[in-house]
Simulated scan of single mutants.
Amino acid sequence: MKIQHQRSQAIDVLRGLTVALMIMVNMPGTPETTYAPFLHAVWHGLTLTDLVFPTFMFVVGTALAFTLEKYEGMGEAAVLKKIFTRTALIFLCGFLMYWFPFISFDHGVSMIPFSGTRIFGVLQRIALGYCAASLILHYSGEKGAWVFAVLALFGYWALMAGFGDYTLEGNAQRKLDLLVLGEAHMYHGEGIAFDPEGILSTLPSIVNVLAGYFAGRLVRRLGASYETIAKLMLAGAVLAAVALCWSSVFPLNKKLWTSSYTLIAIAIDLGVLSLLLYVIDLRGRRGWTYFFEVFGRNTLFIYLFSELLATLFFINQIDGLSVFDWIYQHVFRPWAGAYNGTLLWAVVYMLGCWLVGYVLDRKKIYIKL
């Protein structure tokens, strides 16, 4: 079986598009003045924003399709060192991002205590998903990955149904995180201690990475062809049908990362990738792609930069307002209005992060986490 080794421009654009959207939805201003597609579903349901993170996991998998084969010729010890080193680095960056800026000035100068720092989060889930998918594929191959995906999705459903319910307060994921992590190390944005990137829901998120791997593998094997697009779209249609049927008993829920949500996100990712393959590779419409390729070339670094800069904007104040809120209220809202001002500020912030990526790309600097 002949495998193509060139990278896919469509996959690079999908990666960049995901980062651009992730930055925008993380900087929405207040929920009261944010358009609904740029907010997460309150609990059950699905919005555009709910698709961003699983797509990030998906494109981690597509990258594996192009890099894992290179690992195999390095020897067992070197492969494991590569996987675990990258996992540890990404996980540590995510943890330090939540601990940042490390020092508090509220009552004099003091170190922000580790005891109140969130342990799991976005980069941590990416790290664990990358690690698990790499090890599964390395040791059990594609057949083992299929078996794991089925067991993970149905096993997660069984655990969630058997040890809790599907509410914010009573779900099994929260119970396990409280037991293992403790309330102080969990996310509190829902009003109570509940981590949407907790321990148990990491299990189905690995399936998003594996799905990305299989999609990337298909693109490598068949290239950007009508056959590739047809197979991706057919797989997406089947998964969407299964997901919608499953959602009647295991609802679509990003914060619980339910199995039905996993499948619908994969189905949509396959559809978007198919569209990009058609437009970019088959129709040759490439004039617009460079913008997203910039994001795709320093993906994790640009995301990390965007989060750290946002933290600085929120903890520093002007006239009693955070820098973020002051800019929104004094620069964008007066002339663009509440909702459009919020959206425009998110776009401008995203473009500022893009400019950092553009400078790095022009200087041929690629920071790999």
Rank of each mutant, 00 (worst) to 15 (best):
A310W: 10
H44P: 00
I264F: 01
G296V: 02
L200N: 03
S8G: 04
V347P: 02
M186V: 09
E76Q: 12
C353P: 01
R7S: 10
V150A: 15
L39T: 08
V219E: 05
A338L: 11
M1W: 10
L39I: 08
V242I: 15
G341Y: 10
P334T: 05
F56G: 07
T67C: 01
V359D: 02
L135P: 08
L80V: 05
R283H: 09
M22Q: 09
Y290I: 02
G341H: 08
V347I: 15
A172M: 07
S134L: 08
A243V: 09
T33I: 10
A145E: 09
S274L: 03
L270K: 11
F314K: 13
S259I: 13
P113W: 06
Q6L: 08
Y156K: 00
P37K: 12
F291K: 02
V331E: 03
N298L: 08
G341S: 07
M350I: 08
H40V: 05
Y213Q: 01
G182I: 06
V359E: 01
L96D: 07
Q124W: 03
A36D: 13
V180F: 13
L14M: 15
H188V: 05
Y278R: 11
H40S: 07
D195I: 07
D269L: 02
A127Y: 06
Y213A: 07
A184I: 03
F148V: 10
I302E: 06
W354Q: 11
H44C: 00
F314R: 14
H5T: 14
A184V: 04
I103F: 11
K364T: 07
L135Y: 07
T47S: 14
K143C: 04
T299D: 02
L128W: 13
H44F: 14
T62W: 02
V150Q: 00
L14D: 02
S134Q: 06
L344Y: 11
R86F: 03
D281G: 09
T87H: 14
R297M: 07
V109P: 08
Y187C: 05
L263T: 11
L344M: 14
W99N: 04
T47R: 13
A211K: 01
V60R: 00
D269W: 04
Q124L: 05
V249T: 14
L351F: 13
